[in-house]
Amino acid sequence: MRTFYYFLADVQQVSDQEILFDLYHIIKPAKEEPVRERMKSAVVLPRHYFDYLINNGVMQVEGMSRYKTRQEATVAIGMNIKSIGRHILFDMCFSPQTYKLWQHADAFIDEISLPADIFEEYVYRLGALSRFRYLGRVDDPLAAAEIGENDMIEFKQDFLLSKPGIIKSVVAFANSNNGNLFLGISDEGKIVGVNHELEQYGDPDKYILAITQYIQDKTTPFLTPFPKITLQKVEDKYVVCIFVEVCSELICGLDKNGEKFVAIRTNNRSFIVRDPHQIGEIYVKRKLGSEIGRRLGLL
């Protein structure tokens, strides 16, 4: 028996432009009483965004039995994820166009928390974009060295002698979760720096450009968003910090022969995946979400 869930808007005030409402979430197991959870109070949302949620079947209205939606407008919705686990904490962002979604969203419902499988279905039903913006980002090499390598932190001694490993790690983070790759820190967490490589290039900007170009040339499709690459100084040593955001597309690396490979992050390490069925699972999770994939019998 299927469980139904949806948002419920207890409308307090309506104008031509905006709706004021209290937001609830309803979980209704088959043949059982629905469970009602209060999510937010006094939410204000432009009317065309409010109507969009209703017209797409993810929200119902309480408090106004005769509420009528208007003609649909073009709407882009994004889920800005703040923390992950059994529950996903996120902001729901609204914009007229997708390209304006993150930088110029003009309405938000912030700090919503839902079970991970329910969150994934809402993303699917709304055709929403989701991102793990800066979740898990570590900018301080000293802090990273103290934490040590884990699912979101990996160390490389340098750039020039670690190129294949760098691409494998970037691809693994892009396919698994946000991650931080540090060049100039040993596997043991000792900051050794990349000063010798900076001297070879003669200019920090040229050095960072070389790393950027190498990652761009050795990954496909184009990483969006592209990793953030910065140079940090720890006492007299320089460390390269590369922050990789998880991508919605399946990302492949290119080996020395130009052959594609897929990598994922698991058990604190980056691994190349060769099983085509496992690669298919990764692709489905990227496109549909893990819960939807399971329901379709693909995972």
Rank of each mutant, 00 (worst) to 15 (best):
V43Q: 00
R36V: 11
L198V: 07
I112F: 02
A128P: 06
Y238A: 05
T69G: 02
E33D: 12
V171H: 07
S162L: 02
Y67K: 01
N177E: 14
D187L: 04
Q103D: 14
K82C: 02
Y24T: 01
G57M: 05
N178K: 08
I292L: 11
K31A: 14
I166L: 15
Q12M: 09
L296P: 06
D203E: 13
F261T: 11
E188Y: 09
F7R: 01
E149M: 06
N55D: 10
E32Q: 14
V240C: 06
K228Y: 12
R86L: 14
D140L: 04
V75N: 03
C93K: 14
L53E: 02
T266E: 15
L161T: 15
N56D: 07
H48P: 05
A42E: 12
V58H: 01
D10Y: 07
G148V: 07
N257Y: 13
V123C: 10
R294Y: 09
V262R: 06
K228S: 13
I215W: 01
Y67A: 02
A263S: 15
Y201V: 05
M1E: 14
F222L: 15
K31Y: 15
D217H: 13
V43Y: 01
V273A: 11
P96K: 05
T98P: 09
T3K: 10
D151Y: 12
P115Y: 09
V123L: 10
D16K: 12
I292T: 12
I208F: 04
R274N: 15
